[in-house]
Design a protein around this nucleic acid. Structure first.
Lengths: 251, 251
DNA sequence: TCAAAAGTGTTGGGGCTACACCCATGG
DNA sequence: CCATGGGTGTAGCCCCAACACTTTTGA
């Protein structure tokens, strides 16, 4: 057998957070060609002696100053053809759900990193370079699906949170309002999800809210919510691919 | 920036079918080192000027003589480190669900291809080379998840099938028995799933069964089953990651 | 007439949606 | 006292598991 063809491999990170009740994605402004000056997902080439998930963590820190606070989940691979003007390059995409107090805007290799509203990045004329709009769309769909049956949404909330904070997180990711009373009952009654700390917190007017934390011994990424928190039916369900499940996939 | 490091890229195909009420996977016996003589998933190196899914279809045909009868769904990527003694190699895995009458045992580059029971390939001392046991496990989990909310299980059944044939397919993939009466009602009442042909077929003793086909205009891979056909709860749920959906789906 | 497989009816439980209602606080 | 948000109760709907029962065939 002849020596096999080789390809450069990149990683791209879809890092999501919730700011002001809206889903935001971490993007960098490219300092080099191609697509110099355009927005792009953080990422870069895989080096020798590292796995793709290690490259994703390294590039995220290098380009944005953010150390992955949680779990990097692989989305899928893209390419190698037709996605980079420099030639065939395979890219492996990763998803990260970060708390909203992550150090945004930390600088690095790229000309600044910032949280950008997802809605503005997914328009038909997306400002994102390469095929990053498609990658982002897959990442958002994965996040929407994953929080249905895993406690992963608590990753956005910090160590302690109120039920309302958790609910507004779900609303921001799913993009649809939820009934506060039914959500409260569902969140507090579901096993292996959250537990009360016993503390309460006052936030402006109204009755103080009880504080909760992730239930002990629960992996945020495990599929433990049974029955799941199902998102409301969308009016116009976009064609879906399930990279995972769950729930949740295809290409 | 210096010229980036490059890697060989392979594809591996998890092709599943149902034979004698048991899930089987298409494997080849390796004719070359490393792992000469061991069983492995069909696959090979990605060439210039092809996408990974095209490489998967090409390798499947070359090694097993089987042209992908349906949809090749990307599972995820693996590596590049620690999975091949020849050095760092990234592999992109694909999933294919094939009807049981696919031409098994067709020869090719490798020393023969055959359908092998999945159970025997997933033991702790798996006969599979490389990390193919882990890839197969991910593929089986994706298949189990995907048939919950897509009509994909009909891919195993051929163009026309009885409700009992469809149910035994679900039972083989999920590995657990289902109530025939409840399954019948669920399958026939769910919209955008199957439709009666009007014909019946006699199979040994008992009342003849009505024949059904996939509902017209339905993409087998779309997430159209609402509510989904949920699989029975497993006694010992293995740790899951959803490559796609259904749930699930991730990696 | 009986066994076997296909297919239908029914019943009880649980989760969910929708909403009425009560609780605890600030102004 | 009232506005504001936190939290509980409940009624009706739908789905589902379980299983009794009917239908249609071969032997």
């Amino acid at each position: 057998m002849t020596s096999p063809l080789t390809f450069p491999i990149t990683v791209d990170i879809v890092a999501l957070t919730v700011i002001d009740h809206a889903l935001h994605c971490l993007v960098v402004r490219r300092g080099i060609d191609p697509y110099r000056g355009r927005l792009a997902l953080p990422g870069g080439f895989v080096r020798e002696d590292e796995q793709t998930h290690q490259a994703a963590a390294r590039e995220l820190t290098e380009e944005t100053g953010i150390a992955p606070p949680g779990h990097l989940e692989q989305l899928r691979s893209y390419g190698p053809l037709g996605r980079d003007p420099r030639g065939p390059i395979l890219s492996v995409a990763y998803l990260l759900l970060a708390p909203s107090f992550s150090p945004a805007r930390a600088g690095g290799d790229a000309s600044g990193a910032l949280w950008h509203p997802v809605d503005a990045l997914l328009t038909p004329s997306s400002p994102l370079a390469f095929d990053h709009a498609a990658i982002l769309a897959d990442g958002v769909e994965r996040a929407r699906s994953k929080i249905e049956y895993s406690p992963l949404a608590t990753s956005f909330c910090g160590p302690e949170f109120t039920i309302t904070q958790l609910r507004t997180t779900y609303e921001a990711i799913w993009g649809s309002p939820l009934d506060p009373r039914n959500f409260h009952r569902k969140a507090t009654k579901t096993a292996s999800f959250i537990e009360a700390t016993g503390e309460t917190i006052r936030e402006g007017a109204g009755r103080p809210a009880a504080l909760y934390r992730l239930a002990p011994g629960v992996d945020e990424t495990a599929f433990v919510l049974d029955p799941p928190l199902r998102r409301p039916a969308s009016p116009a369900p976009a064609s879906q691919e399930k990279g995972a499940p769950p729930p949740s996939a295809q290409q």
